[in-house]
């Protein structure tokens, strides 16, 4: 089994959801701080061997924290009376910890997971096979349409087009959207004809995953570790650590 498929996608997705749910459920700042610290540690360990990954996670963190700055500016101060809003500060603190925790946890737990792995994982976790099939198809079509869009943009640049705020830019953007949709429609007709000519049936073929029992202990260990860490972090407030 390659490193890309280890640990099992279903368990990684379940672990990510578990962290997100735990973060949403707890109100304790101590628990959130502890979980964020562990997530940060995990990312540092993983990123030590992969500089590209570090850059990728850094970009994601910058984006979510840009939003959090706006949350802090708007909710921590009562701008009419120019006084500090205690409730707003607590809410902004909780939000900041949760957003950073979930972003870090998702970045490390879903590391190198492809869209096809995701489609197999969601069906394995009980979502309808049709949704898995749609997810798998979309991941294939996104790369093809992205190439088409890149080609269009290159052709537009060759004609000295530069996007600026104005009706011309909006008109050109609308033309690009219309062209992408027409391209998609023409392509879907070709795909439908191809599938029909190959005698496509009208039922869904579920994407096979490894049987739960066949998963190794190493696979389960990642989910086990996440459960233990969350349990310990949620238990922290009962130890009367005040933050």
């Amino acid at each position: 089994m390659s490193h890309v498929h280890f640990p099992d996608g279903r368990l990684r997705l379940a672990a990510t959801l578990l962290v997100s749910v735990a973060a949403a459920l707890t109100q304790s700042l101590a628990s959130l701080f502890a979980m964020l610290f562990v997530a940060l540690l995990a990312v540092v360990v993983i990123a030590a061997t992969d500089k590209v990954l570090l850059k990728n996670i850094g970009r994601r963190m910058l984006r979510v924290n840009g939003f959090l700055i706006i949350v802090w500016l708007t909710s921590s101060i009562n701008w009419r009376e120019l006084i500090i809003d205690e409730t707003g500060i607590r809410l902004a603190t909780q939000m900041s910890l949760r957003v950073n925790l979930v972003t870090l946890a998702a970045s490390s737990l879903l590391l190198r997971m492809s869209a096809l792995d995701l489609s197999r994982a969601v069906v394995g976790l009980g979502l309808p096979a049709a949704l898995g099939a749609l997810l798998a198809q979309v991941s294939r079509q996104v790369s093809l349409l992205s190439e088409t869009k890149t080609r269009l943009e290159r052709a537009m640049r060759a004609r000295a087009y530069r996007p600026v705020l104005g009706f011309r830019t909006i008109q050109v953007s609308a033309q690009m959207v219309a062209w992408l949709i027409i391209h998609a429609l023409a392509k879907s007709e070709r795909i439908s004809l191809g599938l029909r000519s190959r005698g496509m049936t009208t039922r869904w073929f579920p994407r096979e995953s490894t049987a739960w029992r066949a998963l190794s202990k190493a696979d389960w260990s990642i989910l086990g570790a996440v459960i233990v860490i969350i349990g310990l972090c949620l238990w922290l407030p009962t130890m009367e650590i005040q933050l």
Binding site: A130, A133, L134, Q137, V138, R140, Q141, V142, L144, L145, S146, K149, V177, L180, I181, A184, L185, K187, S188, I191, S192, L195, M200, T201, T202, R203, W204
Partner: peptide, 19 residues
């Protein structure tokens, strides 16, 4: 969503993603 409408739906999802 049927196997017949799947390619079209997938392509539109891709368009939505790309735009």
């Amino acid at each position: 969503l049927t196997p017949q409408t799947l390619p079209t739906a997938a392509l539109f999802a891709a368009v939505f993603f790309v735009v």
